[in-house]
């Protein structure tokens, strides 16, 4: 790693101010960022650790019934306190030690195309709350490793509308155990949302065709005959674009079948 300073603010305000330093970068749980730094692929001059900010930690229910998760909340806490689909997703991110450190804010800020949380946020139509504004998930994800966050902006909270039923099905990339394809299905009274991670070169996306079909009839069969095009899907050592496109259908069906 290149060397850097470490700041450990105790409040969002102090964190925002620390992020004003030149070449500052926020450090969530570090489970992706620290390995990246070890490869010397990034050279921040200061890392602003968010791990000591208690106002950014915890899971609670907001006035509108949404599940509000502090940006610095670790995966293990969400696995315990999230609704079924979200808890299930959080309980399968990385491994126990990773879940003890990794945070929802860190994951969403990084927007790895194979990360799990983006599927939940987009699949639930969550709101990404930062120190300065609220961003709808539909506007937040802007492609692989790209988000609507401005420089220095910190995710302080994520608000999830609680679906009637939901489920995340993840087909793992066997080495990294990230999602080769992950599908989050959430049924709300106003309709069904389906978000897919791991598959597309553009990062997480909604599968509109499946959403429409499942909104009509929430059953596995509704997905029969639907498929996502292989164009634009990731193709690598672990699976071709066609294979990933196929898995999107399989995982969607399984998510519907297992939704709770």
């Amino acid at each position: 790693m290149y060397n850097f300073d470490v700041e450990m603010p105790g409040s969002v305000a102090d964190a925002v101010s620390a992020m004003g330093r030149e070449e500052a970068q926020a450090l969530g749980g570090g489970q992706t960022l620290i390995p990246t730094l070890k490869q010397r692929l990034a050279s921040p001059s200061v890392l602003v650790s968010l791990s000591k900010i208690s106002e950014m930690k915890g899971v609670c229910t907001g006035e509108d019934g949404a599940l509000c998760i502090g940006g610095a909340t670790v995966h293990a806490a969400v696995a315990k306190d999230g609704f079924a689909g979200l808890a299930g997703l959080a309980s399968r991110i990385g491994d126990p030690a990773v879940r003890a450190r990794g945070t929802i804010g860190g994951s969403l800020a990084n927007n790895d195309p194979s990360a799990c949380y983006p599927a939940a946020a987009l699949g639930c139509g969550a709101t990404i709350v930062t120190n300065s504004r609220e961003i709808a998930a539909d506007d937040y994800f802007q492609g692989m490793f790209d988000t609507a966050l401005e420089e220095g902006e910190i995710i302080t909270e994520v608000r999830f509308p609680v679906p009637e039923v939901s489920r995340y099905e993840k087909f793992v990339q066997p080495a990294s155990r990230f999602a080769l394809v992950g599908v989050f299905v959430a049924r709300f009274s106003e309709g069904v949302r389906v978000a897919v991670t791991g598959a597309s070169e553009d990062g997480v996306f909604r599968w509109a065709e499946a959403e429409a079909a499942l909104s009509q009839a929430f059953s596995e069969n509704a997905v029969d005959g639907l498929s996502v095009p292989a164009d634009g899907m990731i193709s690598d050592l672990h699976g071709s674009a066609a294979y990933r496109a196929h898995l999107v259908g399989v995982m969607t069906k399984r998510a519907v079948a297992n939704a709770a």
Partner: peptide, 13 residues
């Protein structure tokens, strides 16, 4: 009390 990967945590933290 939590199991963590010590290679992926800054000593400062």
């Amino acid at each position: 009390g939590q199991a963590v990967k010590s290679c992926t945590m800054l000593a400062a933290e």
